[in-house]
Amino acid sequence: MFEFCADPASLEGASWLACYLTTGKHMNLYWSILTVLSLLLITAPTALLFGFAGASAARSTFMPVRWVGQVYVAIVRGVPDIAFFLFFVIALDQGFEYLRHQVFCPDWAEPIRQGNDFIVCKAAKLPLSTSPQWVHEVYGFMLAVITFAIVFGAFAANVLLGAMRAVPHAQLETAEAYGMHRRQVFWRILVPQMWLYALPGLSNLWVILIKATPLLFLLGVEDIVYWARELGGTKHARYTDYPHGDWRIWYFLGLLVFYLVFTHISERVLAKVNRRLSRGQATVGATP
């Protein structure tokens, strides 16, 4: 990157470090931080949407919809979230391929599951074997985003359901007395008021979401954990201009600090937002 990096063997001290930290592979590490951030920015609103749908479904008067909602809300309590992550990535992939298989190759005779194999026709493969590398990476990332959204949607549904229950019942009854029907009560009275009650839970969820991002590594995405392992491993002089021993401990120390700072800043900002929003509200935590 810098001009003085032309001959790494002659470098020492700070200039060696500057050159070392700006090699092409390290650039990949820095890019993967952007991957994490974009995952957060895409997942948070999607999960909120999933959660809102789940919580509304759990309150539905139509029984099957209510059951779907309640199961969605309840299931994450009993089962480790990592199991969901590992499950959904394969299940979603196979689900998509199965649907495409039904559409593109309707006259395929053989069964899709043959012993230990899952076989769909060539046209149904996702992504197509002919597509370039970046399509594969984007597809993997997209699967990860959907998985995160489903799992955190269930958490968010939990929080939102609690918040909906926390809205004083008298408010809803008053609205009904004024002649609003169910839908109007929901959208005009319940939803605007529930956010205040949901905010502490949702801020908690945001911090949890940040702390869940390293699990991207398990989903096969080349994220910061992947690059930290990759770059930290012992490098011999034969293969690289910057030989070093096993430095993984330092890379992971870096990641540890990165996450500590990230969650700490988030918590402080969210606490401020929380104080600001609850100003003048009739709750215990509110400031006058």
Binding site: P214, D246, I249, L255, L260, H264
Partner: peptide, 22 residues
């Protein structure tokens, strides 16, 4: 408390493992 609650358990495991290796 801040150190262990503020960072992901996953990273703590990785860091601890490589620290123990060292």
């Amino acid at each position: 408390i801040f150190l262990f609650r503020g960072s992901p358990l996953f990273i703590q495991f990785f860091f601890a493992y490589f620290a123990f290796l060292a």
